[in-house]
């Protein structure tokens, strides 16, 4: 009990610190943050005639959980691809921790501390869960050809890496699957593995592309816990998600993209009532409910409208 109290104290501290940073910010796209870890300027990516991404200015606050939302095809994944070096932007520049990152190849981006996961999970099927995890560790002595031939040079580090992997797998409830091939995991378990593997890199900024998609509700709750946990450990999280209930639950700040551009930013509580956001979503989604509470209010509205109509009819 006593051991938990200070941990809880820092929990609220981190959360309050993050929220305090956002408190007085304008709800405008590209609003400057007090301590940005990632600063993006004029990133453009075109596919033929289609402009998939056209982001003017954007800053991500350090130590926060920022959600990136937007209708299907808004350009969220493409934007991730530009930032992490998996695709080459037509133009634009961005800095991570003040270091220019445009044109840097993907593996160097990861080494710099900016690690992403994929919307379509990339488990390394014919490697075991443990080997998947070990692969994520950085600066491995045994990854150089000549040293690899001399196991005594890297075996101690391998033990450390294995322990780190084991800790993470336990946290993600995958420790029972240690020696299974990753290809034999279920879709949700693969999502968990990919997230855990990304954490093996010990990143500063974690970019998660729909980490909850296809994960069952019970598991989602624990995943949400893990994501919050990342902030507690001092990491910055940027994640893409469609489920607004989830976004509301864990994020400190929300960025909305539509048709390639950032159209709004704001706190999760009020962002969905922003006119620009409503327009963007309704344009794309034709009244699709975004969460249960939205569904209810939409039902209410529809009922009221119907009642009014019936009343009108009867009055005639």
């Amino acid at each position: 009990m006593h051991a938990e109290t200070p941990a809880e104290a820092t929990t609220t501290e981190r959360k309050t610190a993050a929220l305090a940073a956002f408190k007085d910010l304008a709800h405008e796209p590209g609003v400057p943050k007090p301590d940005p870890i990632l600063v993006v300027d004029n990133v453009v990516r075109r596919f033929g005639g289609l402009t998939a991404v056209e982001v003017g200015h954007l800053e991500i606050q350090r130590g926060s959980i920022t959600a990136l939302i937007g209708p299907n095809g808004a350009g969220k994944t493409t934007f991730f691809n530009q930032l992490t070096g998996f695709d080459t932007a037509d133009s634009g520049s961005w800095t991570f921790n003040g270091r220019a990152m445009n044109g840097v190849p993907a593996h160097k981006v990861a080494r710099a501390g900016m690690v992403r996961t994929f919307q379509l999970t990339k488990a390394l099927s014919r490697l075991t869960v443990l080997e998947n995890m070990r692969l994520g560790a950085q600066r491995q002595l045994g990854e150089s050809f000549w040293r690899a031939l001399l196991p005594f040079l890297w075996s101690r580090q391998e033990v450390q890496i294995t322990m780190q992997a084991y800790d993470l797998l336990t946290r993600f409830k995958l420790d029972a699957k240690l020696d299974d091939f990753a290809g034999s995991l279920s879709g949700g378990q693969r999502k968990l593995l990919e997230m855990a593997r990304a954490l093996m890199v010990r990143p500063e900024l974690v970019m998660l592309d729909e980490p909850m998609a296809g994960v069952n509700p019970a598991l989602t709750q624990s995943l949400l816990g893990h994501v919050k946990d990342l902030r507690e450990q001092g990491m910055t999280v940027l994640f893409v998600e469609h489920d607004m209930d989830m976004v509301r639950d864990i994020s400190d700040w929300v960025i909305v993209m539509a048709q390639g551009a950032v159209i709004a930013e704001g706190p999760p509580g009020t962002i969905m009532s922003d006119e620009r956001v409503v327009d963007a979503y309704l344009g794309a989604h034709h009244d699709a409910p975004l969460s249960e509470s939205d569904l209810e209010s939409q039902l209410h509205e529809a009922e009221e409208a119907l009642e009014a109509e019936i009343e009108e009819e009867t009055q005639k």
């Binding site: 992490t84 070096g85 998996f86 190849p105 993907a106 593996h107 160097k108 990861a110 080494r111 690690v115 992403r116 996961t117 994929f118 990339k122 488990a123 390394l124 692969l135 994520g136 950085q138 990854e143 593997r197 990304a198 093996m200 890199v201």
Partner: peptide
């Protein structure tokens, strides 16, 4: 791509 994303 998975390997790239892990810094190799």
């Amino acid at each position: 791509d998975a390997v790239r994303s892990l810094g190799k």
